[in-house]
């Protein structure tokens, strides 16, 4: 199942719609890395609200994706991790270290906007 990637101004929004296979995840990673360059995006939001199982492969892939995208110039935010999923993840030791996580899409967008403002201030 392919993940739709929406372009929203400077940001890309990948909204996962259903449980993903390992290949789907890798495809998502490559697709995002490609589009970030093509659209010159400054931020990426991956929405995992509907995901009810996050295994070690999925969380590792999300983490490497975030790091890859940062190297490509875009800040990545994972949003919408559900309480049960979050608890299961920490019990498995999957804490997505070094990755920004936010409550939901709205929060993610606010965070990216703040980052943008901060960058603008620094540039002045």
């Amino acid at each position: 199942m392919e993940v739709p990637i929406l372009k929203q101004g400077d940001y890309l929004i990948a909204s996962i719609q259903a449980a993903l296979s390992d290949e789907d995840l890798l495809k998502l990673r490559d697709e995002l890395a490609d589009r970030v360059g093509r659209f010159r995006s400054r931020g990426v939001i991956v929405d995992v609200t509907v995901v009810d199982v996050m295994d070690s492969f999925a969380s590792r892939t999300l983490r490497t994706t975030a790091h890859m995208l940062r190297l490509r110039g875009a800040e990545t935010v994972i949003v919408g991790i559900q309480p049960e999923v979050a608890f299961a993840m920490v019990q498995l030791g999957l804490t997505l270290e070094g990755v920004t996580t936010m409550l939901d899409l709205e929060e993610g967008l606010t965070f990216l906007d703040q980052q943008k403002k901060r960058r603008a201030k620094r540039a002045k």
């Binding site: 309480p83 993840m89 996580t101 409550l103």
Partner: peptide
């Protein structure tokens, strides 16, 4: 510690 980690995953 797990609670702290899980909360962070939820953005708090």
């Amino acid at each position: 510690v797990q609670t702290v980690d899980a909360s962070r995953l939820m953005g708090a």
